[in-house]
Each structure stands twice: as C-alpha cells, then as structure tokens.
C-alpha cells in the first residue's frame, strides 16, 4: 500500500520535508549546543591541521616566531600597564599598594579558524578551559575588539566574532565623549555602524572611537576605528559609519580578556538587587 497510492506518497514526502525543515530550524535556534560539539572531539585535530595548512601559505615563515615573541611582550606590557593604572588609582597608601590586583589580565591565543564572509562569523582559538578561559569573556587584539567567547572545550574556544549581525560593542567617541552601541551590519568587514548617538552632540569626521568600558567584557580605551560618515535617523539620532582599525582577514593572534573584578562586581550587583 505504502508507495503505491500517489496521494499517500505525496503526503509522506510533505511530512518528511516538514520534519527535516523543523529539525533544521531547531538546529539554527540551538546553535550553542553544536558549537560545543564542534570544538570538542577528534574533528578539531583534523580541522586545525587543514586550516593552518591553508593559512600558513599567506604568512612568511620567519615572521611567525617574531610575532609570537611580540605577542608575549605585548601581553606582559599590557598587564603591567593595567597594574600601574590600578596602583595609581589606589593612591600612595602602602596597604593599597600591596593588595592591588590588575583589573584585566590577558591570555594570548592563536586563531585556528576564522571567517569574514558570512553574516554570522565565528572564530575558533587554540586556548580553552585548561588555560583559564571561560564562557562570556571578551576577546581583543591590539587593533580592536574581536568578539566574545561563546563556548569552551578543554583546548579550544568558540568565539562569536564582532562580524556577526547579533553582536554589539559599547563604544565612545573620543573628544566629545558621546557613546552608543557599535554594531556590524553585514556589509563589509572593514566598516561598522555606531548607532543611537544623540543628535545634539558634535562629532567631526575622523574622530576616533574607543570602547567605553561600560561592559565587563572589554577594558576601556581599546581603539576601534575612526568615524567616516554620519547620517541622521528620524531627526533625533546620529548613525556613524566607522572604519575599523581591525582587519579581520589577516587577524592571527588575539588576547582573551580576563576581568578580575567580575565576580566582585556580580556579587555587588546581586546584593543591591536583593535589597530592592
């Protein structure tokens, strides 16, 4: 009977189609489950082999080691800098001087897989839980923001790239101090849009955009880009097109931001919430 009647066969086809389509859409909705599958397991070895083979072609071999040295040095310097900043804020008391920990520390990592040609781009790096990376940590490079850690396995981390239409970074324009969310609109990997800046604020073309430091993900004052063009939305807001300093195509080394005050801050927020 099954397969003979054309109506039943058509019905079976439609049911199969709908089932598979619903399964696909469920997959899309629950992507975070698969991110974990993608970075754990044997496939990563195969994958990291392939992608390093293809991307190594673009790099000179001698520059590689030099880069590594520079990365480590940069990291050390950045940690020292944030330590000194914190010390300066604490003033001259000896107590404060001894007990200070830097606000942010950095874990250097190498990109294994990266894409810039989709609307939802992801990055995989070669550092994971073993190295102290946790979910929801920010990732930066010397030239700007890279993304947010989305899931972690023992040796690898899956990062939602800034080049993802669902991502935004809290940004600040330098001389005027105005701030707003910087989002990527999916057009070009070189440009992003700074939205919702109040109309009365005066900004000139070429002003530099930095991270605001309002979120716990990224340290403040990471340079992001320069303003290139502005447009007025509904007569009340400026939208600025920002040329990013970051070139995501040639991005190779990144630093994962560890916010040492995160737990304290979360606890503080929770306490205040409880009081209310």
């Amino acid at each position: 009977m099954w397969g003979r009647s054309p109506i039943l066969r058509g019905l079976a086809t439609i049911i199969l189609f709908l089932t598979l389509e619903v399964v696909s859409i469920l997959f899309i909705a629950n992507d975070s489950v698969f991110q974990r599958v993608k970075i754990s397991g044997a496939l990563m070895y195969f994958k990291s082999g392939i992608s390093s083979a293809t991307s190594d072609v673009r790099y000179y071999f001698g520059l590689r080691e030099k880069n590594e040295v520079l990365i480590n040095e940069n990291q050390r310097l950045r940690e020292q800098l944030s330590l000194y900043k914190a010390k300066a804020e604490m003033g001259d008391t000896l107590e404060g001087f001894l007990s200070v920990t830097p606000d942010f520390t950095y874990i250097p990592a190498k990109i294994i897989s990266n894409s810039t040609n989709k609307l939802n781009n992801y990055i995989i790096i070669n550092r994971g839980r073993k190295h102290g990376i946790q979910k929801d940590m920010g990732v930066i490079s010397p030239e700007g923001v890279v993304g947010v850690v989305s899931s972690v396995s023992d040796n690898y981390s899956y990062i939602i790239s800034f080049l993802n239409i669902n991502q935004s970074v809290s940004a600040r324009i330098e001389p005027s101090g105005a701030f707003g969310p910087l989002v990527w609109e999916g057009r070009s990997s070189d440009y992003a849009t700074l939205t919702e800046v109040p109309y009365h604020i005066r900004v000139s073309i070429g002003d530099t955009v930095f991270t605001s430091g309002f979120s716990t993900l990224y340290p403040p004052d990471v340079p992001l880009g320069t303003i290139r063009r502005s447009s007025v939305i509904m007569g009340s807001y400026h939208n600025f097109q920002v040329k990013l300093f970051q070139n995501f195509n040639s991005l190779r080394y990144v630093s994962v931001v560890v916010n040492n005050k995160q737990n304290e801050l979360n606890q503080f927020l929770k306490e205040n919430e409880a009081k209310r």
Binding site: E21, S24, F27, K118, Y122
Partner: peptide, 12 residues
C-alpha cells in the same frame, strides 16, 4: 563552520 541547520534548511 556556519550555523548548523542553515544550509540544510535551504537545500531541503
């Protein structure tokens, strides 16, 4: 390395 289900839903 794209979102799971994206290409499959379209190709279905």
């Amino acid at each position: 390395n794209s979102i799971m289900g994206l290409n499959s839903s379209a190709s279905l």
